[in-house]
Design a protein around this nucleic acid. Sequence first.
DNA 1: AATTGACCTGGAGTGCACTCCAGGTCGTAC
DNA 2: GTACGACCTGGAGTGCACTCCAGGTCAATT
Lengths: 146, 146
Amino acid sequence: MSYSIADAARYSGLSIDTLRYYERVQLIEPPARDSGGRRIYTDADLSWLEFLTKLRTTGMPIRRMHEYAVLRRQGMAGAGARKRILAEQRTAVVERIAELRSCLDALDYKIDNCERLERRMAASAAEDDTAEDDTREAETKEEVSA
Amino acid sequence: MSYSIADAARYSGLSIDTLRYYERVQLIEPPARDSGGRRIYTDADLSWLEFLTKLRTTGMPIRRMHEYAVLRRQGMAGAGARKRILAEQRTAVVERIAELRSCLDALDYKIDNCERLERRMAASAAEDDTAEDDTREAETKEEVSA
DNA sequence: AATTGACCTGGAGTGCACTCCAGGTCGTAC
DNA sequence: GTACGACCTGGAGTGCACTCCAGGTCAATT
């Protein structure tokens, strides 16, 4: 099958401008053109784009994707170098996931803290009808910035 | 304890310039100054910075961190809104982790592919002494772009 | 008294990854 | 035959998060 640039954009989730930009920076090879000079993308182009978006998702900079693209064009000869790039990226992703997980813990802790504050505020609002408790309010102030 | 801006940079992992930048965009409140007008950071400042760097790691944009910082200054009154921001970010992080994991699978698949190509190349190099196998070479070409 | 090094300010510059624009061409639909 | 919509080009502009710079202050050292 063949696809217009609009189709390719739909399938890849990239914008038309981004597709042309990727071509300019040589992440993708110039696709074929129809009689009117319009780009025609193939299924192979689309799966390459799909992989590129995955690399992008992993946080790989365009410069490195470009390196990879060049090696890909060299076929088997570039396989070793390609593997190295991918393996390195894999390590980075594993690290990133670990980092995010630890941030998740921090978030959970803080979310919990906010919940406690909310409950305490609700409680002290109900209490306002009866009496004031300065000690508890002082305590709370400490926790707010924790 | 109190810390110079250089100390704060060391502890937070941010650069001195970034610390001043965060102050300008109001992620942190202007710290106290010594007699010579130099910034003095407190332990509380450092733990806030530590949390900020975690939010940054999760991919939270500075605009949103600023929102959060404003709510923090409001103490208990902002707790509910703060919780909402954190919970939203938590969801984003969970999604991000899932995304990264799926990319990890794609990477593994491709790494495997490169390995196969490498081995095949080594094999065909050894084979060069004896005979050529056109069929296998054609097959390989297909796989190179897969 | 001069030098040094850490810090200060306001503002300009950088790198990245797009994103937008003006002005033009093409092929179909009316 | 003209109006339309999708596409084309080269190049400028954007938003983000820093990062760097010039020119200056201050406290301690030589």
